[in-house]
Design a protein around this nucleic acid. Structure first.
Length: 510
RNA sequence: GGCCCGUUCGUCUAGGGGUUAGGACGCCAGAUUUUCAUUCUGGUAGCAGGGGUUCAAUUCCCCUACGGGCUGCCA
């Protein structure tokens, strides 16, 4: 069996969209599954849409996610360059071959002329006029113009494009791994532009040439390309590369949460969730975005979530880190229909990954999030251990650990009104004394001593423990009371208790 | 409009001619007798509709509806 070679081929027109990330992921998984090669190629043939920084963004995103290319842009390899704008001579040569072989022709219609032609056609009732076998006879191209005139125009440097001459009366059939047999009548296919007036190729030409030259075996890309695949097949035929044609797999789209339309960057802004892997900064207003990383997702969790948006291993397994996904992945198990983006499920994955990660692994994320910069590693690890079950997104560490670094300034009024009565007040004073005089602190012995004391005196754990927590953090919610005490330390605890009692008296009296 | 692709709980999905249609998220309830979180248990909810084929269709075929994609000198 020949070596599997797949490519991820984004265009640098802005930050890499999450749908693109999933395409990259599926390509990566397929390559790893078959010990193949995962290639990164930059498709920057539209210079008008080029956005500076986008290439770096793509590389950084893949790096953050751990989807490192084996070959390609930024990595190198035997089939470079891997950036299409640096390959223009190649495309030019092949475009000429197409024309020479009768598979393509020169077209001299200017964009303005085409626009007014389309308007005319529409006025005549044609819904969306196409430059195709039914209309090319009426337009300005090397099929309609005398040969000498064409030669002269080219020699004069008149701008022209090269268009594919779609054959008449054929049916193009191809096998898609995900969708099975798909077919198109050539009568439906337009004469797509292969080479633009600026001398650069369109996606259609560039992608066929590069895939062939780079020996790509499987083209795994979004469903939006399904409609133009017939053109691509025609191109392989025209170049006489048909027996080396790659296999196609067209991925379902990721849809908006509403299910109407594909997920866009606007949806992220509107619903408050990330649709990009990393943050993206732009000068224009409303064009900067936070990414999965900034929201506090772990790369493995984001990947796991994305992997299952359109694919499943066939059983009930859900938590699968990258290497596990690579073992189980198969194109055949990709779902045909589009999947809606569900941020709640994404969060659940993140929570699961945080929960199962060793605290040591979480340490760098924790340190990044908390305000306190001078903290010992042991102490940090203790805190992480305590807080871990309470974290969904990494920044939750900030909120959850606040009580450790700051003394409470406000106390939850409602619960004090309920619990800070004369009886409980007396009990708390006694418990406070017991804490001070206890033989140990912060360990199991301490815990059972204090609990025992509360029980013996019939104070009621349900009264005392919540009050103790409010003393420490101001809130009635939080981790286990005894773990909180241990984290604070005896001295700090006692100070907080004293301060709290005074504050409680003020609050309740007033 | 035309062409192409799709349609199993609210969402992500498993399944496949005869199943109590399975799991996960979410939601609800209960347990862990200190809260919240975690964990555990239980519950809620689905084969778009209509025709065929068949002893039997959610599963195969057709039609309809609905959804999506494409329809650029963009990718």
């Amino acid at each position: 069996m020949t070596e599997i070679r797949v490519r991820f081929a984004p265009s640098p027109t802005g930050p890499l969209h999450i749908g693109g990330v999933r395409t990259a992921l599926y390509n990566y998984l397929f390559a790893k599954k078959h010990q193949g090669t995962f290639i990164l190629r930059i498709e920057d043939t539209d210079q008008t849409r080029y956005v500076p920084g986008a290439e770096e963004y793509i590389q950084q995103s893949l790096k953050w996610l751990g989807l490192n290319p084996d070959e390609g842009f930024g990595v190198g390899g035997p089939f470079g360059p891997y950036k299409q704008s640096e390959r223009r001579d190649i495309y030019l040569e092949y475009a000429e071959k197409l024309v020479a072989g009768g598979h393509a022709y020169y077209a001299f219609d200017t964009p303005d002329e085409l626009e007014s032609w389309r308007k005319d056609m529409e006025a005549q009732g044609v819904h969306s006029p196409k430059y195709d076998q039914s209309t090319r006879r009426n337009l300005k191209n090397s099929l309609t113009l005398p040969e000498a005139e064409v030669r002269q125009m080219v020699a004069d440097g008149k701008p022209y494009v090269v268009r594919l001459k779609v054959p008449e009366g054929e049916t193009v059939v191809f096998e898609d791994i995900i969708r099975g047999n798909v077919q198109f009548e050539t009568a439906e296919l337009d004469d797509k532009v292969m080479l633009k007036a600026d001398g650069l190729p369109t996606y259609h030409l560039a992608n066929i040439i590069d895939d062939h030259l780079m020996k790509i075996t499987h083209v795994i890309r979004g469903e939006e390309w399904l409609s133009s695949t017939a053109h691509h097949v025609l191109l392989y035929r025209a170049f006489d590369w048909e027996d080396e044609i790659p296999q196609f797999a067209h991925l379902p789209l990721i849809l908006k949460p509403s299910g109407k339309g594909k997920l866009s960057k606007r949806d992220g802004a509107q619903f408050g969730f990330p649709v990009f892997p990393l943050e993206w900064y732009a000068e224009e207003e409303n064009e900067s975005y936070l990414g999965f990383r900034e929201f506090g997702f772990l790369p493995d969790a984001a990947l796991n979530f994305l992997a299952l948006l359109g694919w499943s291993p066939g059983d009930d397994q859900e938590i699968m880190p990258l290497d596990e996904l690579a073992k189980l992945f198969s194109l055949e198990k990709i779902v045909k229909s589009g999947a809606r983006f569900d941020i709640e499920k994404a969060k659940w994955f993140n929570q699961q990954y945080i929960l199962s990660k060793k605290s040591e692994k979480l340490l760098p994320y924790f340190l990044e999030v908390i305000p306190e910069k001078e903290i010992s590693e042991t102490r940090a690890l203790e805190i992480i251990e305590l807080l871990k079950p309470r974290i969904t997104l990494l920044p939750d560490f900030l909120k959850e650990s606040r009580f450790i670094f700051e003394r409470p300034e406000v106390y939850e009024q409602k619960m004090l009104e309920k619990k800070w009565n004369a009886v409980n007040r007396e009990a708390m004073i006694k418990v406070n004394g017991q804490i001070r005089n206890a033989a140990t602190f912060g360990d199991d012995v301490f815990e059972s001593e204090i609990k025992g004391f509360i029980d013996e005196n019939k104070f009621g754990l349900g009264n005392i423990l919540p009050l103790l927590r409010v003393c420490m953090s101001g809130s009635s919610q939080g981790p286990d009371v005894f773990r909180m005490m241990a984290i604070l330390g005896k001295e700090e605890l006692i100070q907080r208790l004293d301060a709290a009692f005074k504050a409680f008296d003020d609050i309740i009296k007033a």
